[in-house]
Amino acid sequence: MNPPVVLTIAGTDSSGGAGVGADLATFAALGVHGTCVVAAVTAQDTTGVRAVHPIPYDVVVAQLDAVLDDLDPVAVKTGMLATPEVVRLVAERCADRVLVVDPVLVATSGAVLASAAVVAAYREHLLPVATVATPNAEEFAALGRPGGANVLVTRGGDIATTNDHGTGCTHSAALAAYLAHGVDLATAAPLADAFVARQLHLGSDWTLGRGRGPVAHLLAHPHAPTQGEIA
């Protein structure tokens, strides 16, 4: 039986903790086939965001056409969309699918990642058609504290760790994966919470980077290659 197909429309993260990389790893861990549209390329590490390069609009459209026309994803998950034009594009093209909107407006480091025009586009176009939105507390405030049963305000896990870079991306990707499997939102939300808690616990004692390290995207018991396999 084919796995459900899920699409992430998001930015890259050169540190590997968040963005498209985190989404695809989470999709794989939860048994769905991940596809992607890159909306922005970022230069970032565990201490902060150094640069953001929005992908040209026509290239974003071409990527989206390629996935929607051929693989027909059950669910779409959004991350950093970078421009108001891309926010509106997603609202227009993806409203007929399960749509999980993670409004990436502020990085874990505190860096502001969205302009006022992008925030307005979320409020006016994307949030009204979302199956569920998953802002953190700062993003919820920036969006004007939108109401409705389809808004889940996320928070960090209860695990004592500074390795939490990418928590929001991982949570929303997990939520999209569970919804793609046909689980209802009331059941999918705590499952996504539990998945994130497990991953935070798994990487809680890592020392990767000089700042807030990445959420673990390994499976609980990864198979490390033996010397014989490497040879």
Rank of each mutant, 00 (worst) to 15 (best):
D96K: 09
R97A: 11
T78K: 05
A75R: 05
C94D: 02
P73N: 12
P84A: 12
L99T: 08
E92F: 01
V74N: 01
K77H: 12
V76Y: 05
V87S: 06
V86A: 03
L89N: 08
G79R: 05
V76T: 11
A82M: 11
M80I: 13
V100H: 08
R97Q: 03
V74E: 14
L71Y: 15
L99W: 12
M80Y: 06
A95K: 15
L81Y: 12
A91N: 10
L81W: 06
K77T: 09
V86D: 03
K77R: 13
V90P: 01
K77Y: 08
M80C: 07
P73H: 10
A75P: 09
K77F: 13
D72N: 12
C94G: 11
V74F: 00
V86C: 02
P84Q: 11
A95P: 00
L89G: 00
V87Y: 10
A91I: 07
R97G: 06
P73V: 08
V100Y: 10
V90R: 04
P84D: 08
L81F: 10
L71K: 00
L99I: 11
M80R: 05
C94W: 02
E85R: 09
R93C: 03
P73S: 13
P84K: 03
G79E: 02
K77L: 12
E85N: 01
C94K: 04
D72P: 00
P73R: 04
L89T: 02
L71Q: 13
R97M: 07
E92L: 06
R88D: 13
L99D: 02
A91Q: 09
E85I: 00
A75G: 11
A75F: 10
A91S: 15
R93D: 07
G79V: 02
A75Q: 07
R88E: 15
A82Q: 13
V74T: 15
M80T: 08
V74Q: 14
R97D: 03
A91P: 03
V87E: 07
V98G: 04
A82N: 13
P73C: 07
V86E: 03
E92H: 13
M80K: 05
V87D: 00
T83F: 08
L99A: 06
V86W: 00
V90E: 07
P73Q: 09
L81N: 11
M80Q: 09
C94E: 03
E85L: 03
L71E: 09
L89S: 01
T83C: 11
R88A: 15
R97W: 01
D96C: 04
A82D: 11
D72Y: 13
L71W: 14
K77G: 13
R88T: 15
V100R: 03
E92T: 14
P84V: 08
D96L: 00
V87K: 07
R88S: 14
V98S: 04
A91C: 05
D72Q: 14
V100T: 06
T83N: 09
C94A: 09
K77N: 14
C94Y: 02
L99H: 10
P84Y: 13
V98A: 02
L89C: 03
A95S: 15
V76Q: 04
L71R: 04
P84L: 09
E92G: 10
E85G: 04
